[in-house]
């Protein structure tokens, strides 16, 4: 699946490039960036949640609890101005182009989602994180399997949010290719940019 990287400093892929098509998703084990349905982890019911735990940790026996982040529907935002800023990930303010709401990551709708609510645009709040049982995460439970390229854009946004590191998409993808190449437990289809690693 050839995916076009976002142009320039853009944060996000085209919506069609976010999710592995349902008929292929079974080949992809659960990874960082996969989307799961609502859950109550102690502060009320979440609309949905994203597995943000590092992929290479997920196969370790010692990992009993994994990190997840809260997902909201885009429609939960009070006005279209905020929704636009979250969708673009940037805003122009006084002739300056700035990241907007760096703690958020835009999620395109999952076209094949079995639950209708997930067929609409969403966003992750990277400030709202929690731990949940590792056993709760398996392919059948998954709403959407993030493509390898969309995972690169998620990691890139997290690097900016957590460490204020501003890296081009291609550089994060190069680092992820190196990680995949060194991961003996890597399973499922390998992105073409990580082949031979």
């Amino acid at each position: 699946m050839a995916i076009e990287p976002p142009a320039g400093d853009a944060w996000y892929l085209r919506a069609d490039d976010y999710w592995v098509p349902a008929e292929q998703a079974g080949e992809y084990p659960v990874r960082q960036g996969d989307l799961f349905k609502g859950v109550d982890l102690g502060d009320g019911e979440w609309f949905g949640h994203l597995l943000i735990h590092p992929t290479c940790e997920l196969s370790k026996r010692s990992v009993e609890r994994v990190q997840v982040a809260r997902v909201h529907p885009l429609s939960a935002l009070p006005d279209s101005k905020q929704a636009a800023a979250v969708t673009a990930g940037f805003e122009e303010k006084n002739l300056q182009v700035r990241p907007a709401f760096a703690h958020t990551f835009f999620l395109a709708p999952v076209p094949d989602a079995t639950i209708e609510a997930f067929r609409k645009p969403m966003f992750v709040d990277l400030r709202a994180v929690a731990l949940h049982d590792r056993t709760a995460y398996s392919s059948p439970e998954r709403i959407g399997a993030l493509t390898h390229d969309a995972r690169v854009s998620l990691i890139r946004r997290e690097l900016y949010f957590r460490y204020r590191l501003s890296l081009p998409f291609e550089e994060v993808r190069r680092l992820e290719a190196g990680r995949i190449g060194n991961d003996p437990t890597f399973a499922g289809p390998r992105p073409e940019w990580a082949e031979g690693g």
């Binding site: 076009e4 976002p6 142009a7 320039g8 400093d9 853009a10 944060w11 996000y12 892929l13 085209r14 919506a15 636009a84 969708t87 673009a88 990930g89 940037f90 300056q96 182009v97 700035r98 990241p99 907007a100 760096a102 835009f106 395109a108 204020r164 501003s166």
Partner: peptide
């Protein structure tokens, strides 16, 4: 908007 941001090639000039 998603389509435009992915294709346009915006350049970030300032932080938040």
């Amino acid at each position: 908007l998603n389509e435009l941001q992915a294709r346009f090639g915006v350049e970030l000039t300032h932080d938040e």
